[in-house]
Design a protein around this nucleic acid. Sequence first.
DNA 1: AACAGTTTTGCACACGATTTCATTTTAGGG
DNA 2: CCCTAAAATGAAATCGTGTGCAAAACTGTT
Lengths: 345, 345
Amino acid sequence: MSDPAIRNRSRATADMVARTANVSRVAVSRAFNPHASIKPEKRDLILKVAQELNYTPDMAARSMVTGRSHLVGIIVPDVSGPWESQELDAMTTALQAEGFATLLFRTRDDLSMDETLLTYMKGFNPDSVIAYAENVRPTTLARVLDRAVPIYVGYPDEDAAEAEAAPLFDRLDVLQREGIEQAVALMQGYGARRFAFLAGKTNSLATQSRERMVIKVLAERGLPPPTRIPGDYTYDTAYRETLNHFRLGEPVDAIFAANDVGAFGAIDALRTELGLRVPQDVKVVGFDDIHQSHWKSYNLTTVKLDLTERTQALLRLILRRLKNPTSPSLTETVSTRLVVRGTVG
Amino acid sequence: MSDPAIRNRSRATADMVARTANVSRVAVSRAFNPHASIKPEKRDLILKVAQELNYTPDMAARSMVTGRSHLVGIIVPDVSGPWESQELDAMTTALQAEGFATLLFRTRDDLSMDETLLTYMKGFNPDSVIAYAENVRPTTLARVLDRAVPIYVGYPDEDAAEAEAAPLFDRLDVLQREGIEQAVALMQGYGARRFAFLAGKTNSLATQSRERMVIKVLAERGLPPPTRIPGDYTYDTAYRETLNHFRLGEPVDAIFAANDVGAFGAIDALRTELGLRVPQDVKVVGFDDIHQSHWKSYNLTTVKLDLTERTQALLRLILRRLKNPTSPSLTETVSTRLVVRGTVG
DNA sequence: AACAGTTTTGCACACGATTTCATTTTAGGG
DNA sequence: CCCTAAAATGAAATCGTGTGCAAAACTGTT
């Protein structure tokens, strides 16, 4: 019953290569490990035979003994969002260049699944995990993942005294003050006085932090606090709520959106349905600087989160932790800056 | 030197759980396998102890003996593209619901890396692989991946006699005639006579197939063949080339874009820089129906590739193949249809 | 030619689970 | 109370690879 054809369907192993090349199985292992000492001619022979047999070392077996899976887990709430997918793209590219494969997980909007998901992910033994403050409770993160030290992307209140002096894991903190100050200054310079803040998902730490910082900066510049337009980061909600606000709520002459996609929704509502001009009647600023923001229909002035900078910082954290697993937690910070286009002045 | 603190940093194993619960290691294994026969009270005890010890079965070890990695590899050229990311999102969600994790790889634009990438991916022993015709040569796919049967998403010429009667692997074929016929009919109905085809990447099979089919359908309806505007699926190129064509090339009154993002670029070029109205002066149709296509600034009429339908078909193929690895290759097909919005009439 | 030092080699074990298979325990029926 | 069928149990083999260690092979020097 051991049909050789079926048997042939399975992968080649190091043993088969060894037997074919008339060497020991250990030699095969060494041939594939650059740092192992093996006679060069022997290595060449083995690699040649391996190629003929279409042999590739089994990462699962390898990871069991080395303790390295070469997997990095990434947890994202919505892969299809422009910002999320652009970050995922940058991160996957960077990881791949370092020899890691991306293990992708998608959360639901609520946090109800986070424990199940993390537990499941843990089974794959990722060398590192990138999680975002919005999607996973930090306590769950710390409890479930004991082996891989996760990286937590957060948006701290830069001015507030950080209570958590000793973070549980490596972090990337995004400092949003600078970009927000530049944006408010620009809008004020062009005459904006009554601001609205178009929110993101209410349970999102990023949007909460952005709103607090906008309020603070407005106060510092002697401007009244912003009115609040509800939102959830989506175009449709932003469109609808902007419409609603301009028809029923207090008039405003500037909108600070929690993300670019929301800003697009607001702009389209203003122009298409309300007959208002951007930037002449209402000034709009977004957050993220996704690719779409420079599209001519929007040409959005926005607070940029530099993707390259973020990605490099995350990669540094991962590699450092892998090189020295017991080193104390480190927090990297990245800043933000305004990208000026056509929706303010 | 065997510091218990350091030892403690590593994951709990089935042995530890067994010892703590005073059962055999085999029992622990059975407790986690729903189909295994084990006394319910015993299973409960083990699961309780496992939770206390924060134990999760190691997928790598499990996969070695079961032959199932619970990984599905996906190869994408550009995760950040709207269409690609929306498909990735749908696929990841569906796979996760079936207990698979997504192993994500990103290709460069050219095909030079495909062998290296596939070889690398093979090391992880994915249970299945989803590859797109644009990114990977089918011959490479067949040669490298011997264990996991890949799924190849292609765009066959529906009318041509399919030479490859016996495909090498499972396929998802996208039939584009129907949507294209509807689109051409609609544009012709509103008076369009001289068409342009705004191309995608020239080495993309999807764009080649779309172009051939557009030519064919135009001919069938007694219309002149389309002029060709070069493109690469990006907004910027579409914008620039559309501008260029309308300034120097033959005049057209309809643009059939190979993808939605390209259509956006064309629309913005027409409206912003050329002072032309869409749809009054020029009619535009895209391909894909990404989320952004219903945004008011574009409100694009487009040929929809139904994501749910695609995802379900892919999932069916994967599950069928896993249940019966030796069954002959199967090809599923999905169709396309026009979504009418505001850029034609 | 003998020696010391370095490189190369291969055996045996470890990694963390699952799966026969033979054995013991339990349950059910007369 | 006994017998039989079904369910539960654990010992041992297995998956494919990397690594410690001791032996072997090589290198170059006196």
